[in-house]
Design a protein around this nucleic acid. Structure first.
Lengths: 127, 127
DNA sequence: TATAAAATGAGAATTATTATTATTTTTGTA
DNA sequence: TACAAAAATAATAATAATTCTCATTTTATA
């Protein structure tokens, strides 16, 4: 993987983003500082960064992949009302990989837990 | 939801299927007995059945949704080598929903654990 | 049996993502 | 520093999975 300015900008933009953006959202933000960046470049780099373990790709939340600069073990929740994505502590499922590998005899390369429902704020608004 | 013969056939086909098929695969099987069935009808019914809790839609395994007639709590593993989908016992993550709801204060409606890696058979073939 | 609601088949449309390609940038070496 | 090979880019075409549209048919009910 050679250096590329675009990749650096993409990673920095993702890092400065508190949410768990989709490619489309990142693209809209990147356009401000990098008006000539191509959507293909964005996708290519996001995939490369994920393959190299520098970021994480989150699938199964909604129709798009989301991206996360936090590679520490944690899981995700998407609110069906407001669409926000939240982190869930890995404490909810201790030793998940070891347990599963022991139980199945499979070798695990990637895994994720994805929840959807109603977040605290949206529950409050329903009262 | 009114009765429809097509929906009944779709559900029966899914039930008699040991794998966790995609819509495309189900379509190819259904075509044999229901040559006029429409792909739109298949998708519409799979979604309806899932919304009504009669089947489960599994997302995040690969580029397509997979469908599962087994609605008991369990998780999934997809082998990156052979593409097969396996069930994983819910014992690997006890009290997952309660723990997560307690920890987050969110209301969980849907959740899933998805693993990918190499299955036992494919590991053996690598030796 | 008439009617309204729901479902269908066919195919167009949409959405997210990947592939193609000519050009540009990066990098290791002469 | 210049140069060639490898890698990356922008622009856009292509693809894959799924949903939408709509005229017609089926189902449930009064």
């Amino acid at each position: 993987m050679n250096y590329s300015r675009q990749r650096e900008v993409i990673l920095n933009t993702l890092k400065s983003n508190v949410v768990h953006p989709t490619a489309e959202y990142l693209y809209s933000v990147l356009k401000e500082t990098e008006p000539n960046i191509s959507l293909a470049t964005l996708y290519r780099n996001l995939n490369q960064l994920a393959e190299n373990g520098i970021i994480k790709k989150i699938d199964g939340l909604d129709t798009s992949s989301h991206f996360d600069h936090n590679t520490h073990e944690h899981y995700h929740f998407i609110c069906e009302k407001c669409g926000r994505v939240f982190d869930v502590s890995s404490d909810i499922a201790p030793n998940l990989v070891k347990k599963t590998e022991d139980e199945t005899g499979f070798l695990i390369n990637k895994y994720d837990i994805v929840f959807s429902g109603t977040c605290k704020d949206c529950l409050k608004n329903l009262e």
